[in-house]
Design a protein around this nucleic acid. Structure first.
Lengths: 154, 154
DNA sequence: GTACAAGTTCAAGTTAGCTTGAAGTCAAGC
DNA sequence: GCTTGACTTCAAGCTAACTTGAACTTGTAC
């Protein structure tokens, strides 16, 4: 008995606004069946998909990246435990990278700014891997990785 | 001899685009003197300010927050080492918080998604401090902190 | 049968952090 | 004196991730 949920119920249970759910659907992150009236009906497993989306956003993935990850799930039925596990492997690396960067920045706080070497061309810490001079917009020094551009905020 | 730099020189040395520098100036993050011709001339200490801005962005502060921090610096002359040190104290906490969140998310990956409890209403890890039900836009569960909205990405 | 909440689509608006383009100025080199 | 490149301002555009509003339909309650 697949007990279907309305968009309002899903919004309430997930804490994600209905407008955002429609937006996610438009982006292909989630999907819904339709009642005869044209209204969305969500099978319960959508809640876990949404959970994944929110988690992944916090980790710093863009919706596009998240969509790519979710696309790897079996399209039919509720994904199994190991399906989710497979997805999460990629994150782990990403999280570790980000943590490493934050540690580095923290070190930069005390070592670099503290010691006075935070002058853009001399600091080893501020210039990891000599990344300067790359093409494209945005600050090019200190930025070890490309910046997805949105809300994996801090 | 305060050796003044043009905007092009500053852009080159900092890796920050000239357009971004003007933008930062408009936002009050940096300032410039003007040559008789109306062109910007930057005293060297601006480079350190810019460095601070870029670092802070990576940490996840918004430009507005960064501006607030920078406003605490003595307006006149080059800030001293201890001026910078004072500023950095606040970051440390922020960085630690963010690292803690990432660790938590990482744990959620294996424990939560792995074990199958990532169902939005049951997971202890996914619902820290019972933050759900708050007002405002955006996903309300799992999000331990408010999201500045922009590019402290990942 | 009538009100009201909840749902629908589509277009446009919002915020952050910039970039791009247009139109004009200025300084240096030839 | 003329071109070139670096600079100026100002307005508009861009992307991500949504939200908001308008106009309309449906389902439920009384």
């Amino acid at each position: 008995m697949p007990e279907l949920l309305t968009i309002g119920e899903v919004a309430k249970r997930s804490g994600v606004a209905a407008s955002a759910l429609r937006f996610y659907e438009e982006k292909g992150l989630i999907s819904s069946e339709r009642a005869g009236s044209g209204r969305r009906r969500y099978p319960r497993p959508v809640l876990r998909r949404i959970a994944f989306v929110v988690f992944a956003q916090r980790v710093g993935l863009t919706l596009e990246e998240i969509g790519a990850e979710l696309a790897k799930l079996p399209p039919q039925g509720a994904p199994k435990r190991r399906d989710w596990s497979r997805l999460s492997a990629a994150w782990s690396i990403r999280i570790d990278d980000r943590i490493a960067e934050l540690e580095r920045l923290k070190a930069g706080l005390t070592e670099c700014i503290g010691c006075g070497c935070l002058s853009l061309d001399r600091c080893r810490l501020a210039n990891p891997g000599d990344g300067a001079g790359r093409a494209g917009p945005g600050p090019r020094y200190w930025l070890g990785d490309k910046r997805p551009a949105a809300p994996g905020r801090s």
